[in-house]
Nucleic acid binder design. Structure first.
Lengths: 290, 290
DNA sequence: CTTCATATGAATAATATGTTTCAGAAGCAC
DNA sequence: GTGCTTCTGAAACATATTATTCATATGAAG
């Protein structure tokens, strides 16, 4: 290692809170392609970050360098140290933490989960699911279990912004039969059931299927027993170095589904978003006078 | 790869025979610590190679560049290509779908978000947050906004399994002052506030800080205005090709925090998990006879 | 030893870079 | 809203970098 024992990246992290809007915009660019983006002239860097050159110079000072060239010199020397050391692994995520830090372990693991999930995910199936959820003719109900209710709720909140006829089924399973009453044949039921599969979900799925409701099931790699009643199911990888399972990949899929539904129903969605916007404005106004 | 398909190193090798003594001395230095040595100013490079600056400029021309800066630019872009991680250069995620399928676009994007978030995240700060959340002496309250309530709820559910004194503050902000009453100086408030930052959250943060409550804020890369009242804040990247923002990275961080708290408090957590297990068993038994 | 061709770097000119200043914009507090 | 503070980038300025010129050095050929 060179004489400096604190990297530019770390200085940025440490000082981030003290930076202004334009400066943050700038350091984002620097870190995005670290450290190469900081190697060119101050002018080029400023252009890439859409800020002025004085902003770059000021930031360098703020971070404790004598000026931009000084910062650049350190970047070069860091790079030299990195490149000349064959042992350096570039796949460390949180650069200032050791390989064994939980952040790095988690990151490796989650990426692996994502990769494996997508490897097994059929794009055609995904598109069919999107199709089902975009169809205004059929209502959509969403239900989750003990730990997956948050996912259900997240999905519901977004779907609700895009279309009519979306219901979030409450946590308490004793009320579920009532919800079933308003689900007709062809309607869509989105279920979440991960490891430590829940009895209630299983029974609910069975009853729903009997009514001709089409079930989309989000489950884990091993598969919930409710799978046998589902029209489509998506298996997310959920294992991480923790006593609990990870919902990150499932949430990823949900967001992709949401984005796809949004594309599919853009005219309607767009209209609704604008209305919603207007409503929020009114609420704000209302609050002011209370 | 950039537009040029022949590297500087190759050009040097190809043109080596045509070079003069001083020029060869120079390119030896360049290749010795390739490509960093070529990143500084022409003056420094000349000094390192014990030649004059005109020699450097002439050599650049001889190798077919317009001038020294042009050669330097190519060195930079080569470096960029080398350094940028192979993970992002997608080996297509969902194998059967085209590159342009939303799943693949989303995957690239989210990985990028994760990488950039972790680049900004200081491991020491992370550890301090874990420390705060593991301390049984102080209660922990969790609150989210319109779209981030699901995250708050997810976090709460897990924290609740690990320790006593965790509260989920309800969605409806009119009740928030009541929750404030039971928060004492030193207690911890976990807040979520993403783009379209919410007034209520801001005011709540201000009041909480005034009471000496320590705030941990989960926000986006631009930073919620509530940040100025927070003891620690974590900035997640949230942009994806969608009309809405992504919570995947935030959820990732949450899970890492949860795992770390679990490690920190393992004796207590372990005990609680077993008790919880027993309780669930009883519930099941109970249901059977109903 | 002289001549000539080529190579080289000191000095200088041309150009680009980085810094500072300052006026206007944006945000905040009252 | 009004006044205050802070932030920001255009422009001017100072500085460093790069290209060019040219005198000298070097070495090969006769």
């Amino acid at each position: 290692m060179p004489a400096h024992d604190i990297t530019v990246a770390q200085r940025i992290q440490d000082g981030f809170d003290a930076l202004t809007r334009a400066e943050r915009q700038l350091v984002n660019i620097i870190l995005e392609n670290y450290p190469v983006s900081g190697m060119g002239s101050i002018t080029v860097l400023a252009e890439n970050a859409d800020v002025s050159t004085p902003t770059v110079a000021r930031m360098a000072r703020k971070l404790g360098f004598g000026g931009f060239p000084e910062m650049q010199a350190q970047l070069r020397s860091e790079l030299e140290a990195t490149i000349s050391d064959p042992l350096t692994k570039h796949d460390k995520w949180a650069a200032d933490a050791p390989d064994t830090h939980i952040l790095n372990q988690f990151a490796d693991n989650v990426i692996d989960n994502l990769r494996n999930t997508l490897k097994h995910l059929n794009a055609g199936k995904f598109d069919e699911i999107v199709e089902m959820l975009s169809d205004p003719e059929h209502t959509v109900a969403v239900v989750g279990g003990r730990l997956s209710h948050s996912l259900a709720s997240y999905f519901f909140t977004h779907m609700q912004m895009m279309r009519d006829g979306v219901t979030l089924i409450e946590r308490n399973s004793s009320s579920w039969p009532h919800y079933l009453l308003s689900l007709k044949a062809g309607d869509v039921l989105v279920m979440f059931d991960m490891r430590r599969y829940e009895q209630d979900i299983l029974r609910f799925a069975e009853m729903a299927q009997a009514r001709g409701v089409r079930i989309i099931l989000f489950t884990d790699q091993w598969g919930s027993p409710a799978g046998k009643f589902a029209k489509h199911q998506i298996h997310s990888r959920i294992e991480v170095p923790s006593a609990w399972d990870s919902s990150v990949v499932t949430m990823f899929i949900l967001e992709a589904v949401i984005a796809a539904v949004q594309n599919e129903t853009w005219d309607e969605t767009n209209k609704r978003m604008k209305e919603l916007e207007a409503l929020f404005e009114k609420t704000k106004l209302f609050k002011k006078f209370v």
